[in-house]
Computed example of a mutant assay.
Amino acid sequence: MQKNITGIILAGGKSSRMGTDKGTILLNDITFTQHIINNLAPIVDEIIIVSDNENYDQFGVKRIPDNVKNYGPVAAVYTGLKASKTAYSIIVSCDSPKVDLDVFKPLLAHRNNKYDIVQYICNSRTTPLTALYNRKCLGIFKLALKNKIQKLRFVIKQLDDKTIPAPDEIKDKIVNINTPKDLERYNIC
Rank of each mutant, 00 (worst) to 15 (best):
K105C: 04
K105N: 08
K105A: 09
L107P: 02
L108N: 02
H110F: 11
R111M: 15
R111N: 08
N112D: 15
N113M: 10
K114E: 14
Y115C: 06
Y115T: 07
Y115G: 03
I117P: 01
V118M: 05
Q119I: 04
Y120F: 14
Y120I: 11
I121S: 10
I121R: 10
C122R: 08
C122D: 14
N123G: 07
N123C: 08
T127W: 02
T127K: 09
P128V: 08
P128M: 07
P128E: 03
T130G: 00
T130F: 09
A131N: 05
L132D: 02
Y133K: 11
N134Q: 08
N134R: 10
K136W: 02
C137R: 02
C137P: 00
C137E: 01
C137G: 00
L138V: 04
G139V: 03
I140L: 13
F141G: 00
F141P: 01
L143A: 14
L143R: 15
L143D: 11
A144S: 13
A144T: 05
A144R: 07
A144C: 06
K146E: 14
K148I: 07
I149G: 00
I149T: 15
I149N: 08
I149Y: 03
Q150S: 13
K151H: 10
K151Y: 06
L152W: 01
L152Y: 01
R153H: 12
F154D: 12
I156R: 07
I156A: 06
I156F: 03
K157Y: 04
Q158W: 09
Q158G: 02
D160S: 12
D160Y: 04
D160F: 03
D161L: 09
K162E: 11
K162V: 04
K162P: 01
T163E: 10
T163L: 05
I164D: 01
I164L: 05
P167V: 12
D168A: 13
D168R: 13
E169W: 14
E169K: 15
E169R: 14
I170F: 04
I170V: 12
K171T: 15
D172Y: 05
D172P: 03
K173E: 01
I174Y: 03
V175L: 13
N176E: 11
I177Y: 02
I177S: 02
N178L: 13
P180W: 03
